[in-house]
């Protein structure tokens, strides 16, 4: 089996439940990921994949359960979105969100790992290492020539890459990526899988994806969500052989 949990457990969620207007979107969900691990989450529409990410990042508060982080097992439920982001959880949304009114450089500088309080930011001055890092990141995502361009002028694909660059700039310990392949060309998909597997060597990465081909290429452990709880977990071949999974998801 490939992509076994490596290192100590980084994030552990257990017994999560969320109810929206009487509808239980997440039901007694448990999930754990190691410090350097790539994990794919699949499941039919409405299975609760995005909601699960919302819980981890502090956007949605669960009715029950707990989410523990790192070797000290700090509870994430007591923190707000910004605090959770600062301890090292980065998130990429389904639609690309970059600050269109600002240049690629400004976008990246805002994302760079640095103190975030107003007073610290007021005192911040562009220094050589930061500028170098900005350039390296831009080059890494193919925007080396576009540093001074307004990001609103970029193509859809370039915006996706800029957002990925911003995520890298944050240097997160856990990266949550929601449907990265949506709207990408075949070549871009391949680039993305390479990048994600590369990233997972130094941190934990969770990828939500519908596209089975994409998941297969990630070559990692897969968690299948259905109606808000885990239906199966294991290698892709293992879960696709599971009759329940075939019934609710693949068989349709």
């Amino acid at each position: 089996m490939t992509g076994q949990t490596t290192g100590a457990t980084l994030l552990e969620a257990s017994g999560l439940s969320v109810t929206f207007d009487g509808y239980r979107a997440i039901r007694n969900l448990s999930f754990a990921i190691g410090e350097r691990e790539l994990r794919a989450i699949i499941g039919p529409n409405g299975a609760g994949k995005t909601t699960f990410m919302d819980i981890i990042t502090g956007k949605t508060r669960p009715d029950e359960g707990r989410v523990l982080w790192g070797p000290l097992s700090r509870s994430l439920l007591a923190m707000n979105e910004a605090q959770i982001a600062r301890i090292g959880i980065g998130r990429k949304f389904q639609r690309p969100t970059v600050f269109e009114d600002q240049t690629v450089r400004e976008n990246l500088i805002m994302a760079l790992k640095a103190p975030r309080s107003p007073f610290a930011v007021l005192r911040w001055k562009p220094r050589r290492p930061d500028l170098d890092r900005t350039e390296t990141l831009a080059t890494q995502v193919g925007l080396g020539q576009a540093l001074s361009r307004k990001s609103g002028e970029l193509s859809h694909g370039q915006k996706q890459w800029l957002e990925i660059g911003m995520l890298l700039a944050q240097e997160p310990k856990l990266l949550l990526v929601d449907e990265p392949a949506a709207g990408m060309t075949l070549a871009e998909r391949e680039q993305t899988t390479t990048l994600l597997t590369e990233l997972a060597k130094t941190r934990a990465v969770v990828v939500v994806e519908h596209d089975m081909e994409f998941v297969r290429r990630l070559n990692c452990r897969v968690t299948v969500l259905h109606e808000g709880s885990v239906l199966a977990e294991g290698s892709l071949d293992h879960v696709t052989a599971n009759p329940q999974v075939i019934e609710v998801y693949l068989g349709r």
Partner: peptide, 17 residues
């Protein structure tokens, strides 16, 4: 300016909006 344009996104970047 980023907070003006998308404050939710800024929270996920770690800024105490």
């Amino acid at each position: 300016r980023a907070i003006r344009d998308d404050e939710t996104r800024m929270r996920f970047l770690g800024y105490p909006v």
